[in-house]
């Protein structure tokens, strides 16, 4: 069991070192056998992992990986969480007095902005909000996986969701300006993805640059 965990950790360490340090990853992997003979495999592997992570900011591929994780965990996942809360909050068809705290504590007041003729739209609007939030989870994974084709699909889906919400809220006589905030978040994500994808293309090859357009 320890041997398997140590080898697993070593695999992550080797991958974290990137292509230009792959020989060092192999060197560490071979030394793991010596550590195993001394019953220090786990400590050795864990140290190698920490060492590999410490070297990541020193090379371009490592900086790219760290930035990808920062973008996924620091931007995309928090936006998904906010969208889920907003959907549960009744956005965009419930006017909430007392704000988020009032909603969570049950002390706030919620006023339904839909009238008798449009209140049937409520569940559908919530569903679209939750779909918008849900599409951010695979989006975060595909960014880490550098699968830019699927990233584009997820962003298109998010854009379609926001457009749908804007049209339906307008038809329901709600204020469509409410959609400016999620639209701005999506624009921010799109810009960040575009920069990351171009960076990835510069690091690993030019095919992607052709797909992204002439300006790079």
């Amino acid at each position: 069991m320890t041997r398997t965990v140590a080898r697993l950790i070593m695999t992550v360490a080797t991958l974290s070192l990137g292509a230009h340090r792959s020989a060092w990853g192999q060197a560490m992997l071979v030394e793991l056998e010596a550590a195993e003979a001394d019953d220090r495999a786990l400590g050795f592997a864990f140290g190698c992992l920490i060492g590999a992570w410490r070297t990541m900011p020193e090379h371009a591929e490592g900086r790219f990986v760290l930035t990808s994780y920062a973008l996924s965990l620091g931007l995309i996942i928090p936006i998904a969480a906010v969208l889920v809360l907003a959907g549960a909050f009744g956005f965009p068809f419930v006017d909430a007095g007392g704000g988020m705290f009032g909603f969570l504590s049950g002390s706030g007041t919620q006023v339904l902005l839909l009238n008798a003729g449009t209140e049937a739209l409520g569940p559908a609007l919530t569903l679209v909000m939750l779909l918008l939030a849900a599409c951010h989870l695979p989006l975060a994974w595909w960014v880490l996986d550098r699968d830019w084709d699927r990233v584009v699909i997820a962003l298109c889906f998010a854009a379609a969701s926001i457009t749908t919400l804007a049209i339906v809220t307008s038809c329901a006589a709600l204020d469509p300006k409410q959609m400016l905030l999620p639209a701005s978040a999506l624009a921010l994500e799109t810009i960040a993805m575009s920069i990351l994808a171009r960076w990835h293309a510069r690091l690993f090859g030019g095919d992607l640059l052709e797909k992204l357009g002439p300006r790079h």
């Binding site: 340090r21 060092w24 060197a27 560490m28 030394e31 550590a35 400590g43 050795f44 592997a45 864990f46 140290g47 190698c48 992992l49 920490i50 060492g51 590999a52 410490r54 070297t55």
Partner: peptide, 11 residues
Amino acid sequence: LLSGTLYPLLM
């Protein structure tokens, strides 16, 4: 030295 210190130094 621990492996996490040794290998970055060697590199």
